[in-house]
Design a protein around this nucleic acid. Structure first.
Lengths: 139, 139
DNA sequence: CTGTATCCCTCCTGATACTG
DNA sequence: CAGTATCAGGAGGGATACAG
């Protein structure tokens, strides 16, 4: 029995962690809104409603798959609305809900933080790398 | 030539996107701080300095590899400090820098948003799923 | 125009075992 | 105690082709 103590303990820990995640679904939500494409879509829509292909153009690097996937999950979560206009060529508009707007405010705040402190991070990074270089050159 | 128009356009778009990312490294930073383990480590450290194994215990589901990896990148970015005390068993403490604290404030805000609006999201989700069921049952 | 379905491939993740 | 090295597995992301 003693031979699998480590594995067992790890499994126990993992189980506890999973349980924690179930009690605290905030983490899921947090993971979702911190998704790469989510922030881009929400920022794009913050300026106003947009059509599918407009979004595809504005975000530029996104594949139709990821765009649709992101849009669907955001619609499901009530972050944005999807409006179909059955004209001759179908037209679909996406717009932020009030909930979506409040989220966009937050994302903007985070973005601001990143912009404000980027210099600091960058300097810390260079200093850190430089010191690493010194260390390896020493000996 | 006409046969690769789509591919070319996509490549152009991708190039433009990459260029945008270089001009706006905020996105990289944003991606980094929205990492799954980053938020957990920063929250854990928000309460005060901790040792390596303490972090491992508190976060519970993390493997030593991911813990070290996360810690290293955060140290490099000046979010936290790593202090080695060369005692008989080596002792290493991790602590948030002022920069790290300001970040923890933001992450807390996001977490608060997630907690506040979780009900709303959940309801939106159920309504959406219910409507989908109705749609498929109609016809 | 607006998506959907498929395949593929890379990166990330995590587990294990070993070192200082 | 505090990591590092290595390897396997899986999920996510992208490209393509096709449908409504």
């Amino acid at each position: 029995m003693a031979t699998m103590t480590a594995a067992q303990r790890r499994e126990q820990a993992r189980f506890a962690y999973d349980a924690f995640l179930k009690e605290c679904p905030t983490n899921q939500l947090l993971d979702r809104i911190s998704d790469k494409w989510v922030s881009l879509v929400v920022s794009a829509l913050a300026a106003g409603p947009m059509r599918y292909s407009d979004l595809g153009r504005k975000i530029a690097g996104v594949s139709p798959k990821m765009l649709t996937q992101t849009l669907r999950s955001l619609e499901r979560d009530g972050i944005l609305t999807r409006t179909v206009t059955p004209s001759v060529p179908v037209r679909v508009d996406y717009a932020l809900t009030p909930l979506g707007h409040s989220l966009s405010l937050l994302l903007t705040a985070v973005k601001d933080w990143a912009e404000t402190h980027f210099d600091e991070v960058h300097r810390a990074r260079e200093r850190h790398d430089a010191e690493a270089g010194e260390t390896s050159r020493a000996s």
